[in-house]
């Protein structure tokens, strides 16, 4: 007796490719954690790095966008104060104003206006160095690309 068509549980999205756990590049492994610790020790004091795991410092005037209280990745919000201070924390200068000024001194300043994709929150705390090497930091959801 026919049971009719099997009902699909829903459209299949593109799952993240399953990779064999590499002792260094796979997040969560001891090797990855060690590299992340070194990265944080270097970038923390210099850039106030928040270890988002998908570093964009090169395109933001070497200024960490995760230090913006709104964690904006695509430029200054409309609330920047007249004197350049932050809308949220008036004791600090707008992170993006600083990023804008610094980026103008860099040879690759054209990247400042790149549209940066949403943060992959799964990468928080992991090493952006490793994620850069493996390409993991450039993986975006399928719906992001026009």
């Amino acid at each position: 007796m026919s049971q009719g068509p099997v009902t699909s549980p829903g459209p299949v999205t593109s799952p993240d490719p399953v990779t064999s756990p590499d002792p260094v590049t796979s997040p969560g492994t001891a090797g990855h954690r060690a590299v992340a610790a070194v990265e944080h020790a270097v970038k923390g004091p210099v850039f106030d790095c928040r270890m988002c795991g998908q570093c964009v410092l090169h395109s933001t005037g070497m200024t960490c966008p995760m230090t913006c209280p709104k964690t904006l990745r695509n430029g200054p919000c409309g609330g920047v104060r007249e004197d350049g201070r932050c809308e949220v924390d008036p004791s600090m200068r707008c992170v993006w104003l600083r990023a804008f000024e610094r980026s103008r001194r860099l040879p690759w300043r054209g990247h400042f206006t790149d549209l940066r994709p949403p943060v992959d929150n799964r990468l928080a705390g992991s090493s952006s160095w490793i994620n850069l090497l493996t390409g993991r930091d450039r993986r975006t959801p399928p719906g992001w690309q026009p």
């Binding site: 829903g10 459209p11 695509n74 549209l115 949403p118 943060v119 959801p141 399928p142 719906g143």
Partner: peptide
């Protein structure tokens, strides 16, 4: 602020193109 303004624009356009950010139709 899981998304920012420009990202939300792109996501809304993806919806208009018939897919969620995940790619689901």
């Amino acid at each position: 602020f899981d998304l920012d303004g420009p990202q939300l624009i792109r996501v809304a356009c993806a919806l208009a193109e018939g897919r969620y950010l995940s790619g689901r139709a």
